[in-house]
């Protein structure tokens, strides 16, 4: 009786295992005949296309087609969404974007907000990327050392990367609002409230701070991987060669980390130029247009304003695409020359 009782879970397990094995066998064997047939009929080259087709369809529909449509919208005018109702206007949208008496004074431009967004983006990118690379590098160097709780800190720094940018921005908004956590702390210590998100300088600072905080973990991870790939022997050889810690960093670590640094720089740069969601939720581009960047200008122009100027937005997005293309090419070239050299 006991034996029977003891053996029934084993029987169930055996049945389940057997069933799973049969299903797996079936799954693997069902496509075999048609695949063999396809291989015979189509040949090796064509069958590759068969596998690529589903992905190509998705890519075409959701990436390639929108790019083409974007081109079409950029050279057509009017406020209609339906393509056939949009008149062809050539380069008028681009002319409008670039109509400026003095490019260094955006108030003299026809689309002053576009130029304001360009300047804001340039300022943001130049500060944010430098800080991003710098802090990621410092953090990676610290996390690469034998410190207490290294595993914990590595997770902690990466944690913000796992959060949605919108969540990150909402959390920080909650901290930085007039009646937010930070002001409550300042007040409890006898200080006065600061309008963090309403003061143009402070809001710009916090936009940089929050984006660096949110994305730094990812870049730290890339640099940490690079640091760990540097053999310990090389450092020991440098130690025997009487290299000071600073010289070891400058002459050994930095050059050997350069391929990873270039990747980080390229990714950070491209992402910084595209910054939208964190800023949109945190400051909404404000106060005024103090934190309006290029992507937000495109969004505002195309979708958020009462008169939706799709053509202008599409033209601006092409300008952004050109900027990103140039940046990517420059970085690829730099990384190639570094690796080859």
């Amino acid at each position: 009786m006991n034996d029977k009782f003891a053996s029934w879970p084993h029987r169930v397990l055996a049945v389940v295992t057997g069933a799973l094995r049969a299903i797996t066998h079936l799954m693997l064997n069902i496509p075999e005949r048609p695949m063999r047939w396809a291989q015979r009929v189509l040949g090796g080259q064509r069958i590759a296309w068969l596998f690529l087709t589903p992905n190509l369809i998705i890519f075409s529909l959701f990436t390639f087609l929108p790019i083409l449509i974007n081109f079409y919208y950029a050279v057509t005018g009017g406020v209609q969404l339906w393509p056939s109702e949009r008149p062809f206007i050539g380069t008028e949208n681009f002319q409008k974007l670039f109509a400026c008496d003095n490019y260094f004074d955006y108030s003299t431009c026809d689309q002053d907000l576009f130029w304001r967004a360009i300047y804001n983006s340039m300022k943001f990118v130049s500060i944010q990327v430098v800080l991003m690379v710098l802090f990621s590098l410092i953090t990676a160097l610290v996390l690469n050392r034998k410190i207490v709780g290294r595993g914990f800190f590595r997770s902690v720094y990466f944690f913000p990367v796992l959060l949605s940018p919108v969540v990150v921005a909402l959390v920080w908004r909650w901290i930085l609002l007039r009646d937010g956590v930070l002001n409550a702390i300042i007040e409890s210590m006898g200080g006065e409230k600061v309008l963090w998100l309403l003061d143009p300088s402070w809001s710009f600072f916090w936009v940089i701070f929050v984006t660096v905080w949110a994305q730094m973990g990812f870049y730290t991870l890339i640099l940490l991987a690079g640091l760990q790939a540097i053999p310990r022997d090389v450092y020991e050889a440098a130690q025997m060669d009487r290299a000071s810690p600073w010289r070891t960093f400058r002459k050994i670590t930095l050059p050997l980390l350069m391929p990873n640094m270039i990747v980080v720089l390229a990714l950070a740069l491209i992402r910084a130029v595209q910054t939208f969601d964190e800023v949109f939720v945190l400051t909404g581009g404000g106060p005024g247009s103090a934190t309006t960047f290029l992507v937000q200008y495109i969004y505002n122009t195309g979708f958020a304003q009462q008169i939706q100027r799709f053509g202008l937005a599409a033209a601006a997005s092409l300008v952004l695409a050109v900027v990103l293309f140039i940046l990517t090419m420059a970085q690829l070239r730099a990384s190639r020359s570094k690796i080859d050299g």
């Binding site: 053999p231 022997d233 050889a237």
Partner: peptide, 29 residues
């Protein structure tokens, strides 16, 4: 410290500085 002992070590993996030329490797110390 190792640097001050006046010793030199040849490692199993050679531990050459991969980004430096042979001359720079020899000159570094």
């Amino acid at each position: 410290p190792a640097a001050q002992r006046g010793l030199a070590m040849v490692f199993q993996s050679y531990a050459l500085y991969p980004h430096m030329t042979v001359y720079q490797n020899l000159a570094f110390g």
